[in-house]
């Protein structure tokens, strides 16, 4: 499928990734090739076929709703790129102007 720069901009916004310069052209070409390759799927007639969604044989895996702690605050904060003793620290969330 033909992929243009607008499509790359749209997808990279959704995926929270950024491609600049040569990388942008490379990902555009790759996606064009790979989507073209994936169009081989159209050669199979799937009329009336249900999509396969779950592979598990399990039906309704139920359990009691019990209160238990298996992860402490210290553990949760352990791998944070930035944290204080109680909270994750993140850059400012609310901006005055939207970019």
């Amino acid at each position: 499928m033909k992929i243009d720069d607008k499509k790359i901009a749209e997808l990279s916004h959704l995926a929270k990734l950024s491609f600049e310069g040569e990388e942008k052209e490379a990902i555009r070409k790759d996606l064009e090739k790979i989507t073209g390759f994936c169009e081989l799927l159209n050669e199979v007639d799937t009329t009336g076929v249900e999509p396969l969604i779950y592979l598990s044989d399990n039906v309704n895996v139920l359990r009691e709703d019990q209160v238990k702690q298996d992860f402490t605050k210290e553990q949760a904060l352990k791998n944070a790129p930035k944290a204080d003793s109680d909270f994750f620290r993140v850059p400012k969330v609310i901006n005055t102007a939207r970019n």
């Binding site: 989507t35 994936c38 799927l41 159209n42 199979v44 799937t46 076929v49 249900e50 999509p51 396969l52 969604i53």
Partner: peptide, 11 residues
Amino acid sequence: YYTKAQKVRQI
């Protein structure tokens, strides 16, 4: 693409 592939997976 996605639903189509799920159907092909079923087959």
